[in-house]
Amino acid sequence: MADAGDSRSTQRRLEGLFTAHADRVYAFAAHRLDPEAARDVVSETFLAAWRRIEEIRDPALPWLLGTARKIIANELRRHSRQTALTERLIVMTSERDTGDESASAADRQSVIAAMRHLSEADQEVLTVSAWYDLSGSEAAKVLGCSPGAYAVRLHRARRRLHRQMGPAAAEDCASHPVQEVEP
């Protein structure tokens, strides 16, 4: 009886995780892969969660995104290609009306254009910091590094982004050191 009870409890936990986080995991994958591959990533990620449910502590999202990130990396390696994150971003942005008028379209284009010149690693740390409502330590967990290393990576990626955006922006970055922006 106890086993059946445990099993139901485990099942409920997974259902809870899926309901709470599947959207975010799917988005994370779909931002990097086509929809079919993104669905596979969700499936593999939650399968891993199902098998390791006892090990997953709350908040579970960093664990899930970190696992999805590894699965995506394997997928990309298998097909010998890069994520072309900004290419996907340009397609996705043009496919929809963002509805977010808080930043001008020109600013968005400028940032996206600059990001295209950055390394995959820089693009990744910038987007993980901005898109998924994660704290610094959660983002570090997703990227598989220490919070300190994450802060340094983010700082350097932002600096390189500023540099790509032109001398004025780079100058401004130098006089305004990194400030971790927690959502």
């Binding site: 977010d100 901005a130 898109w131």
Partner: peptide, 11 residues
């Protein structure tokens, strides 16, 4: 920059 990046967030 962070703000603009957030506003460019895909779906």
């Amino acid at each position: 920059i962070h703000h603009v990046l957030r506003s460019a967030r895909p779906p």
